[in-house]
C-alpha cells in the first residue's frame, strides 16, 4: 500500500517537475540575455537621474494608472516618429522602476511630451481636459492642484531606488525633501543643480507660489519625459516602415 502510494506520489511530482522544467526555458531564453544587454546597446553618458520632485510626480502618474490610456514607447514606425518624435531607445527608460511603456493609446503617447506644452497648458488640461481640448475623453484631475505633496518620505524613496540600481548618492538621499521643495519653488537652489545638473528645471510648475502640490510634481515629471538624455535625437534617422 505504502509502496504504491509512494510511486504515485512520485508520478505527480514528476509531472510537476516536468511542467517547471518545460516552462522555465522559454522565460530564461527570452529574458536572461537582456540582463547582459548593457554590453551591446547604446549608452547615454548624458543620462541624468529623476529629481526627487520628478520621482514624486512619477509616483502620481503610477498611482493614477495613466498607463491604462497613455504609452511611453514610440515605435520604429514612420507615422509614430512623425507624430511623437524620435523613436524610444532602451536607455531612456533604464531608471524606470517599473517601466511605463503601456499597451494602449486611448490618449496619445507621452514618451516625448516634455517641453511640448507650457506648464499653464498642462495645469489647465489636467484640471479640465475638455476646457482645452473639447472632444477629449480624459478624466479631470482637479484634485491634484489642491492636494499637498508629501515630501518627507522622499529620502526613503530615493534610498529604495538606489537599492534596485539607480545611482542616487547618499547626499541626494539626505537632501531629497529639500531638493523637492526647492525645485517646486520659484528660484530652485544651488544644491539641486549641483546634484542633478544645470538643466534641471526649477519653477512654480502649477503657477501657485503657495504650497507644493501634487500638480507641481506631476507636471515636473511630464515636462522631463523624453528629456533625460539627448541620445534619441542624436541617433540616425529611423529605418521607416
Amino acid at each position: 500500500m505504502f509502496g504504491l502510494h509512494y510511486r504515485l506520489e512520485k508520478h505527480g511530482m514528476a509531472l510537476l517537475l516536468g511542467i517547471i522544467f518545460v516552462t522555465s526555458i522559454g522565460g530564461l531564453v527570452d529574458i536572461a540575455p537582456l540582463f547582459t544587454i548593457d554590453e551591446t546597446v547604446e549608452d547615454a553618458p548624458d543620462m541624468r537621474l529623476y529629481t526627487p520632485l520628478e520621482v514624486a510626480g512619477r509616483n502620481i502618474y503610477i498611482r493614477e494608472g495613466c498607463y491604462a490610456c497613455h504609452s511611453q514607447m514610440i515605435r520604429t514606425l514612420r507615422d509614430e516618429v512623425e507624430r511623437y518624435g524620435p523613436y524610444s531607445l532602451a536607455v531612456e527608460s533604464k531608471y524606470d522602476h517599473p517601466m511605463q511603456w503601456g499597451s494602449k493609446r486611448t490618449g496619445p503617447d507621452l514618451a516625448r511630451i516634455g517641453g511640448k506644452y507650457s506648464d499653464e497648458w498642462q495645469v489647465a488640461h489636467l484640471i479640465d481636459p475638455r476646457a482645452v481640448v473639447p472632444q477629449s475623453i480624459m478624466p479631470s484631475y482637479r484634485f491634484l492642484s489642491t492636494t499637498g505633496l508629501r515630501t518627507d518620505d522622499l529620502g526613503l524613496h530615493l534610498k529604495a531606488l538606489s537599492r534596485v540600481g539607480v545611482p542616487y548618492t547618499d547626499e541626494m538621499v539626505t537632501n531629497a525633501t529639500a531638493d523637492a521643495i526647492a525645485q517646486a519653488g520659484a528660484d530652485g537652489s544651488d544644491g539641486l543643480t549641483t546634484r542633478y545638473g544645470e538643466a534641471t528645471q526649477a519653477r512654480l510648475f502649477d503657477g501657485d507660489p503657495g504650497k507644493v502640490t501634487e500638480m507641481d510634481a506631476l507636471i515636473a515629471y511630464l515636462q522631463i519625459l523624453g528629456r533625460l538624455t539627448n541620445a534619441a535625437h542624436a541617433n540616425s534617422p529611423p529605418p521607416g516602415e
Binding site: 526555458i25 522559454g26 530564461l28 531564453v29 536572461a32 540575455p33 547582459t36 544587454i37 554590453e39 551591446t40
Partner: peptide, 19 residues
C-alpha cells in the same frame, strides 16, 4: 566587452532549438 552577451545569446538560441 561583448563576449558575455554573445555567449548568452548563442546558448539561448542554440539550446532553445535543440530543446
Amino acid at each position: 566587452p561583448e563576449t558575455g552577451h554573445a555567449l548568452t545569446l548563442l546558448f539561448a538560441k542554440g539550446f532553445g532549438l535543440f530543446y
